[in-house]
Amino acid sequence: MEFRDLKTQYQKYKQEIDSAIQKVVNDANFIGGNEVKELEEQLADYVGVKHCISCANGTEAMTLIMMSWGIKEGDAVFIPDFTFFSTGEIVSFKGATPVFVDVDRETFNIDTIQLEEAIIKTIEEGKLTPKVIIPVDLFGLPANYPEIERIAKKYNLLVLEDGAQGFGGNINGKRACSFGDAATTSFFPAKPLGCYGDGGAIFTNDDKLAELLKSLKVHGKGENKYDNVRIGVNSRLDTIQAAVLKVKLKAFINHEVEDVNRVYNLYNVRLNGIVETPSIPEGYYSSFAQYTIKLKNNDQRDGLQAKLKEEGIPSMVYYVKPMHKQDAFAYLEFNDQDFETTNNLCDIVLSLPMHPYLSEEDVDKVCDAIKEFMF
């Protein structure tokens, strides 16, 4: 059994993927080929925004936004404490200060009440200037953008949606990566829409921001790549990855998001009353980058993971350590009691196999093993 089954996906679309890759090889246009522009147009159309700017990976996508917004030393950027390291890393990389915020236990996403409290506290302390909120669409579920955008407007802050895991989700039909002032996603192979290497994209309706990003991602180019008008980086999505993503995007739209939600429902029915299953608020739709359950304590979580391993069932713990406890952020001062939910989640969460190609028989096998352990 695969945790995220890219092998079955490839076999299903082997002819189209192989043909798309071969075309790039035949054309020998490996950087900036037509497939890149076509993919960007298709992604922007799917998400429902004016511009999609592809780049090297999801981390670079967020870094480019930090560069374009001029985020610097003395600025405060508010991010959830329960997420992958890169969301905080890109803040420190620009010399700014990440301000970690505890999360909602039900959704795993940033707690909007504590977000506003953190903003007020930062303003009152007067040491940092609040600039940006970076909500994360954790495990495929969009964050509470209606409330986050209200808070951002109240305190004159920018919002960058980290949709690395959320691509394909929506809130009342408004798709992930269309929220805030800009949004980013990742095409890392295990993501909801993944390529066969690294890749990322930025989404925005801001024409000036889009033009600036196109310059920054290619060495700060002006009219051409030999006319350099600013300091930039080298962050391009290569043509082969774009060709693969074009094939995968069709499958993603046609059935994959629907299929992971089918698997979600299968799990929920079988695990109801056995363990704490994912909670999707009314009006929200998840792309289920992960299906994450909660156990009673660390011993029970680790025991269940060991049991699943014995049965040949893969599982993962996202995340074993909160952001505020990462050694890289040891220079920052925090009160551990401010992260009660995140600290608890790191001890009790367990992600089960989840992908569009998971059969009902496999779901039964996973759930039977869980029931056997629990009882």
Results as ranks from 00 to 15, higher is better:
residue 263 V to G: 08
residue 326 Q to F: 12
residue 53 I to G: 02
residue 130 P to C: 06
residue 373 F to W: 12
residue 287 S to H: 05
residue 266 L to C: 05
residue 101 V to M: 13
residue 151 I to N: 06
residue 303 G to C: 08
residue 19 S to I: 07
residue 223 E to I: 13
residue 60 E to K: 06
residue 335 N to C: 03
residue 345 L to V: 11
residue 232 G to H: 00
residue 177 C to D: 07
residue 40 E to D: 03
residue 347 D to W: 08
residue 368 D to K: 14
residue 233 V to T: 13
residue 324 H to P: 04
residue 182 A to R: 03
residue 346 C to D: 00
residue 98 P to R: 14
residue 270 R to Y: 01
residue 76 A to M: 03
residue 346 C to R: 04
residue 63 T to Y: 03
residue 72 K to Q: 00
residue 291 Y to H: 10
residue 273 G to Y: 07
residue 239 T to G: 05
residue 178 S to T: 11
residue 32 G to K: 06
residue 178 S to H: 04
residue 96 A to H: 02
residue 273 G to I: 07
residue 180 G to N: 01
residue 102 D to S: 12
residue 311 E to Q: 15
residue 245 L to F: 05
residue 109 N to T: 15
residue 131 K to T: 01
residue 322 P to M: 13
residue 264 Y to S: 07
residue 64 L to T: 01
residue 131 K to I: 02
residue 315 S to K: 13
residue 71 I to N: 00
residue 227 D to Q: 06
residue 247 V to G: 03
residue 21 I to F: 08
residue 108 F to V: 14
residue 147 E to S: 10
residue 170 N to M: 04
residue 171 I to C: 00
residue 275 V to C: 00
residue 90 I to T: 15
residue 293 I to Q: 07
residue 90 I to K: 13
residue 357 Y to I: 03
residue 325 K to F: 13
residue 205 N to W: 13
residue 150 R to M: 08
residue 235 S to I: 03
residue 119 I to A: 06
residue 46 Y to D: 03
residue 314 P to D: 13
residue 331 Y to Q: 06
residue 66 M to I: 00
residue 105 R to G: 11
residue 75 D to M: 02
residue 55 C to M: 06
residue 356 P to I: 05
residue 142 P to E: 01
residue 314 P to K: 12
residue 71 I to G: 04
residue 156 N to E: 15
residue 158 L to S: 09
residue 208 K to E: 15
residue 244 V to T: 03
residue 27 D to E: 14
residue 34 N to I: 08
residue 294 K to G: 05
